[in-house]
Design a protein around this nucleic acid. Structure first.
Length: 495
DNA sequence: AGTACGT
């Protein structure tokens, strides 16, 4: 347990989130309004106004000059809003965080970190300082969100208690596996054990025949976690931290909101008091709204919309006269020039179009594979492994990999189809667009995005995307011109 | 339509 000895009162606030309309039995625990901090108890507190102590943390730029593993933009605007009277400082060194020697060793040796990144320096003190308030954290794609909450989980686990103490819920199997890998690496010397709660491939043991999980950290996907809980294999009564990765999707009506609420409901029975951490690069207005209703007494960390990702990757649009032209572009320009690049992800809308595109691109002597949810689990693992090992250079994917997939070699993203809203097909899904773009240009590296457009609708969608982000997306003049693409890639810094 | 399970 890492508890920093900061001035905190012990007003035990029962922190629950998800106290939504459908569970009225949960009584809102009022904040102890007797918050008398050392610095403001001179005033006879004339106004016990609802005004929370909003301590904006200004980020001192002097300490973030150099970071060996992160190449963040220096001018990042992050605003942190704290709730209540706990004071947080920014951590300039990992030593400031009271981490165990074993964990520090993992950070320095395995992760090769030298000092906290900017978002870590802000969020980690908020995660690790009692009374362990909930946190809503928005941070750039590829800026190290994962390392934040993994470090948070590892440092809050009591290594001597062999019970599930930290749980992380992710939208996809691939993301859960990826996060698990980070956890194992970072926690290598801690002896902390972990369990992947994901749908298994061919080698599956039926849940009823499984033993109860006694691993200290569980990372997984909603359905599996739900099943493990309802069959009493996953006991959350000792839970200290609950993490939602890609939180906005996990709490979106159109995403996993129902599953997330169901899981939380199952947890109610275990009566644990746990800290909730919400991490995502995007928070749509509706989700943001929901979160603010539900995480009432939490801390927040937000990044300005304009600052998110879209300046590190160069975006282009390609006017293709028809569907076939899109395929020609990929085959004759991208594959050609791609030889000199890193790796590419091509995003499509449906599983079917993924298969079709794969077939049409055929075997052009290029390592090109396809992944989506209808592909057998074991095969999905194999596809991802081959891609991570660099054996394949181009991967066709549905939005399965739109979020969180971290592969630093990806520097080109192709939108074969643009993402649009389910209920309003004439509106783009700007969050998904941003997440897709975030697959390129990891950790501030150079990246490019080509949006292939053939219909009026697609032009319209991209126009709305430009408007939403307030950016101008440059047009590649001629879809048939190799020079034009070369020029575009050069301008993006990729050639 | 996409993510997620198990039957």
């Amino acid at each position: 347990m890492a508890d920093s000895s900061s001035s905190t009162n012990s007003s035990t606030v029962t922190q629950r989130w998800g106290d939504v309309e459908d569970d009225p039995q949960e009584v809102e625990v009022e904040e102890s309004t007797s918050s008398s901090t050392p610095e403001n108890n001179n005033s006879s507190s004339t106004s016990a106004v609802e005004l929370p102590n909003l301590d904006s943390l200004a980020i001192d730029d002097e300490n973030t000059k150099k970071n060996d593993f992160l190449d963040e933009p220096e001018d990042t605007q992050i605003s942190a809003v704290t709730s209540g009277d706990t004071l947080y400082s920014t951590a300039t060194k990992f030593e400031d965080l009271n981490l165990s020697p074993e964990l520090l060793k993992g950070l320095y040796i395995e992760m090769k970190f030298t000092r906290p990144s900017k978002i870590q320096s802000i969020s980690l003190p908020m995660i690790l300082t009692p009374p362990y308030k909930d946190l809503v954290a928005q941070a750039h794609n590829g800026s190290g969100k994962t390392t934040c909450f993994v470090l948070g989980m590892l440092s809050r686990v009591d290594p001597n208690l062999k019970e599930v103490q930290a749980l992380c819920i992710c939208p996809t199997r691939e993301l859960a596996i990826q996060n698990m890998d980070v956890l194992k690496k970072m926690g290598k010397y801690t002896g902390i054990t972990s369990f992947p709660a994901i749908p298994s491939g061919s080698a599956r043991i039926p849940i009823p025949r499984m033993a109860e999980i006694k691993d200290q950290v569980v990372i997984g996907t909603p359905g599996r976690i739900r099943d493990l809980m309802s069959s009493k294999k996953l006991n959350t009564s000792h839970l200290k931290v609950l993490v939602f990765d890609e939180a906005d999707h996990m709490l979106d009506d159109d995403g996993f909101k129902d599953d997330s609420l169901k899981i939380r409901k199952l947890m109610e029975k275990d009566k644990a008091r746990y800290q909730v951490l919400l991490f995502s690069a995007t928070f749509s207005d509706t989700v943001r709204n929901f979160v603010s209703r539900v995480v009432k007494d939490g801390n927040q960390m937000f990044v300005k919309k304009e600052e998110l990702t879209l300046d590190v990757v160069k975006q282009y649009k390609v006017n293709c006269p028809n569907e076939q032209a899109k395929i020609d572009v990929i085959r004759d320009r991208i594959f050609e020039l791609g030889e000199k690049l890193g790796q590419t992800i091509i995003f499509v809308k449906t599983r079917e179009s993924a298969n079709e595109l794969h077939k049409k691109l055929g075997d052009y002597g290029y390592g090109c594979t396809t992944i989506h949810g209808a592909i057998e689990k074991d095969f999905r693992d194999k596809i991802v492994k081959e891609f991570r090992d660099g054996l394949t250079k181009v991967l066709i994917s549905t939005d399965l990999l739109a979020r969180g997939f971290d592969q630093s070699q990806i520097n080109l993203v192709i939108n074969y189809n643009l993402p649009s809203k389910r209920d309003y097909p004439s509106d783009p899904d700007c969050e998904v667009y941003l997440h897709r773009c975030g697959r390129a240009g990891r950790f501030g590296r150079k990246g490019a995005v080509f949006n292939l457009l053939s219909t009026d609708r697609e032009h319209m969608l991209l126009g709305k995307i430009e408007k939403h982000f307030g950016t101008h997306i440059v047009e590649v003049p001629d879809w048939k011109s190799n020079e034009d693409f070369e020029q575009a890639l050069k301008a993006a810094g990729l050639l």
